[in-house]
Design a protein around this nucleic acid. Structure first.
Length: 480
RNA sequence: GGCCCCAUCAUCUAGUGGCCUAGGAUGCCGCCCUCUCACGGCGGUAACGCGGGUUCGAAUCCCGCUGGGGCUACCA
């Protein structure tokens, strides 16, 4: 029996998500429960979306949660590198092997043709699936096109007939007819692999024995199983975890709810409470058992067969209750003091605040009202508070809506970038920056007079800013 | 549209054919404690989606329906 090895493989394409922490926790628990190892791998094969900043934040927040990995891009290990962008030659090798075996082929089809094909397939009620045009080309044809410099991708071959049975550890056998499984792209025209190839190759090479991943992967499991068999490898055991949901039951998304681990940190949740809460979502307690438990206890009582299959709503009020219990039951006054300091009034943060606040106060006692917004969750505002003279409701809605998307797209969250976004929005609206800034001051700081806006936003963090803008928008009756 | 997953209180869930006139937790309501509030204690509210089977017996097994969700990219 080989040693149990699990992994979490986040994609560094945005702010770290609680779903990632949930999946990481399950993989961590399973590995530790069985005396195995837990690996962190970065899936950055999408070079247009991946950022170093996102990777850094993911590592930092997972560590904040108390999860540690035995191997990973920062700690190294015998199966590295742990960043897929550094493993290109490995994927090329296996793509080459698949091509040679005839289990993959070069595809020269244009995006336009593929799009047309899919539209037609959908219209006639068929599954969306590559029609195999490029499979019909002779080797000479392929060589000629390649020599002519036609761009191509490498696609995996999928049988037209038969059934693939995916054995899910929790759900049992799940059947897929091969004719409903698409001939996925394995190597993009930029020479980098897609997730499908990279995850199979890496899981094998890294000796991963069990894969716990989100349910969104269940329908592509047949492709992965097929690749394992083409390459002559033993696939790991698979289990698909339910997706965390918004209160409206859709997949948890930052458009509707706080989803960022950074949000929970900025709001003053304790990492042990957050992890405890996520653990409850994976393994509920039995009657009479206390719901508070630390990581070792979570690991000890972890049972994969008790992970629910239905997607749970991320129930913020319950997290609040649990976090409150941690604060009043698990923090002695000294620890309380230290953790509050680390959270909001660390010397570094106070130094920064000093520069921003000192010019605006006459007594230290002015600090309370001036900086209260930095130590608050939601602000209680009325629509009248937002209204000034320079922007009407329609314009404000427009400005907030634009800000919501543009701020999300900022690669690095700092005052400079935020300023650029606000100025661009003012320009779009044909207004002065100062006039556009006013409602933002109110929405973000709760008052039209405050310490500088862009710094305030930076200090609050992207997630809280998003929540406050969303709140302001709601006050004005929705997006514009 | 096609494929797949899922289905117990508002929410998280226990429940793996009789222990269930369905248990716990959050939320909400009430009472108690109390210099306020909160905490805490006690009590209450509230669910097996529907229809067929199988069985002596079904929340538990099977089928259909309905509902929800995911996937359907040269993103993961």
């Amino acid at each position: 029996m080989p040693k149990v090895r699990t992994r979490v493989a986040p994609s560094p394409t945005g702010d770290p998500h609680v779903g990632t922490a949930y999946v990481a926790l399950v993989n961590y628990c399973f590995a530790k429960k069985h005396g195995g190892e837990f690996v962190l791998r970065i899936e950055d094969t999408d070079q247009t979306r991946s950022t170093a900043e996102s990777e850094r934040a993911i590592l930092e927040t997972l560590r904040w949660c108390g999860l540690s990995w035995d191997e990973g891009p920062d700690v190294g290990g015998p199966h590295g590198p742990y960043r897929q962008s550094e493993r290109s030659s490995i994927y090329r090798e296996y793509a080459g092997k698949l091509l040679e075996q005839g289990d993959a082929f070069k595809c020269f089809c244009t995006p336009e043709r593929l799009e047309e094909m899919r539209v037609a397939q959908r219209a006639s009620g068929r599954p969306s699936r590559y029609d195999g045009l490029c499979l019909s080309y002779s080797p000479e044809d392929v060589a000629r096109r390649e020599a002519a410099g036609e761009p191509y991708v490498v696609r995996m071959r999928v049988p037209d007939e038969g059934v693939c049975v995916v054995e899910d550890l929790r759900r049992g056998p799940v059947e897929f007819e091969y004719k409903t499984v698409d001939m996925q792209v394995l190597m993009k025209s930029d020479g980098l692999p897609t997730y499908h190839l990279a995850n199979v190759v890496d899981d094998h090479l890294m000796g991963i024995t069990h894969v716990f991943r989100g349910e969104e992967w269940l329908s592509s499991a047949p492709k992965h199983l097929l690749l394992y068999s083409y390459l002559g490898w033993q696939p790991p055991k698979l289990m698909h975890l339910p997706l965390l949901r918004n209160p409206d039951k859709s997949k948890l998304s930052k458009r509707k709810n706080p989803t960022g681990i950074l949000f929970f940190r900025a709001m003053g949740y304790l990492p042990e409470a957050l992890v405890n809460f996520l653990a409850l979502l994976a393994n509920a307690v039995r009657d009479g058992e206390d719901e508070i438990m630390d990581l070792p206890a979570i690991v000890r009582r972890f049972e994969i067969e008790h992970v629910p299959t239905g997607g749970p709503v991320f129930d913020l009020p319950k997290l609040d209750w649990l976090n409150g219990r941690y604060i009043r039951e698990r923090l002695d006054p000294a620890t309380f003091a230290r953790r509050v300091t680390d959270w909001g009034i660390s010397p570094q943060r106070l130094t920064r605040l000093a520069q921003l606040a000192a010019p605006r106060i006459e007594r230290f006692s002015d600090l309370g009202p001036l900086l209260a917004f930095l130590f608050s969750g939601r602000l209680s505002l009325r629509p009248e508070d937002l209204r000034g003279t320079k922007l009407d409701d329609v314009e404000m809605r427009r400005a907030f809506t634009l800000a919501l998307t543009e701020l999300d797209a900022l690669p690095v969250w700092d005052a400079l970038g935020i300023e650029a976004v606000l100025k661009r929005i003012a320009e779009t609206l044909g207004k002065k920056t100062r006039d556009v800034a006013r409602p933002f001051y109110v929405a973000i700081t709760g008052s039209p007079t405050s310490i500088p806006l862009f710094d305030s936003m930076e200090l609050l963090g992207r997630d809280i800013v998003r929540e406050r803008l969303r709140g302001a928008l709601q006050l004005l009756g929705g997006a514009g």
